[in-house]
Simulated assay, not measured.
Amino acid sequence: MQRIQEMIKVEMTYSSANCANELEIIWLDLQRRSNCHYFLTWDWFGAWLQQVKQPFYLLKATINNQVMALAVIFEKERKVLGLRSTTQWWLNRTGEEALDQSWIEYNDFLIDKKYEYELRHALMLFLSKQDKWSEFIAGMLSNKAEETLDVLSNNKRNIIEDFGYQVNLQDINTSYKSEVLSRNTRQKINQTQRLLSQKGYLSFRVVTLPKEKLQTLNSVRAFHINKWKNTPTPSGFENPTFVSCFKAQLLNKHSEIAELTLNDKPIAYLINYLYKDRVYFYLSAFSNEFEGKVKLGMYLHSLAIEHYRERNLKYYDFLAGKSRYKQSLSNSEYAHNMCGYYKSSLVFSIESTLRIIKGRLDH
């Protein structure tokens, strides 16, 4: 290990989206040598990076001039307690809500799997020595990524504490419904199928061709906007940056759309990403003409899960979010957090104390 660590060279250079073509080449090469999740592939992350059009720091680790680790770091200024300006570094995010609405999950460094432990150690050592940042923000993080970043600072706050839910399809022998779902959940799904069937003919399909995926986009957009209008979190389809990213991500080979129709009329969609042995559920859009006992989401997810199990995928991942339906449809969970690390200072100590007091009062 000592020998490898001595060979690792870590550097950070100022860059921009104009260099995306050059970055794509080395990113794709490293991606093939990594164990990354889909959100760190160039198909997803590259599409987002080319749309945000903001300068960034490119963090890079090499061994014998071969790139072994990469990350993109955006810099942002904020006022602490409305008084002191402080510098934040964001891992693979800008820190701007509108630009980050294409939400990254399983955020991490892109790392060659051969020397993953040594490379993580070298990256943390390098970042901890940088004096420009006062806060380092990263999320959403798996346990492994969070444990890596915990060495950055003894001062940490959990910005978002969440769980992700998934179905381990390998644990199912014959039937997803009978082996994973509770009696109550099965009843809701069967009731939905019965109520919809009384209205006509139901059809399920998975759309994989780029042209067909584009053709469904208007319906997906309309359903999604209607669901989230007049809420604190409006639909991403009203955000030009999100739409541009989503279109690029939708058209690559890893995206699929599960569609449910009633009498040949679309009533529900799921946007899924497939990478290696995992299905990532990213976005849903439903018609608003069904309410009450009709659980479109539960029913469509159950169909999609059975479909992907038959295709020998290993996991159906609902990603982060403590929604009740995700818990009801899953057989495993994992922690998924956004964390902030900050350097010791009086103003941060005061802010941290005030957060604790506010949290207790809210509770």
Rank of each mutant, 00 (worst) to 15 (best):
E77K: 12
H37W: 06
R194T: 15
L181K: 12
K293V: 02
Y201A: 15
D100R: 03
Y176P: 00
H37L: 10
W42V: 05
R186Q: 15
Q249C: 12
S287A: 14
C339T: 13
A285E: 06
Y57G: 06
I137Q: 11
E147W: 14
L91E: 08
Y341V: 13
Y273I: 15
L58G: 11
Y342T: 03
R360H: 14
L319V: 11
L300Y: 03
M124S: 00
L91P: 02
N155L: 08
M140Q: 07
E289G: 06
V294I: 09
H301A: 07
S128M: 03
Q187W: 13
N331L: 10
L127F: 04
I4R: 15
V279E: 00
K265S: 14
F246S: 07
K314P: 04
I189D: 04
A47D: 02
P240V: 12
A258F: 00
H121Y: 07
S235N: 03
A335H: 12
R78I: 08
Y308T: 03
N337V: 11
L202F: 06
K9D: 12
K276P: 02
I305H: 01
S352A: 04
R32P: 02
K293D: 11
E24K: 15
N35F: 13
N173Y: 14
I225C: 08
S197M: 10
W90P: 09
S203L: 12
N331I: 03
N107D: 00
R33A: 10
L313Q: 07
E238V: 03
D362M: 12
A47M: 02
Q101Y: 03
R324I: 15
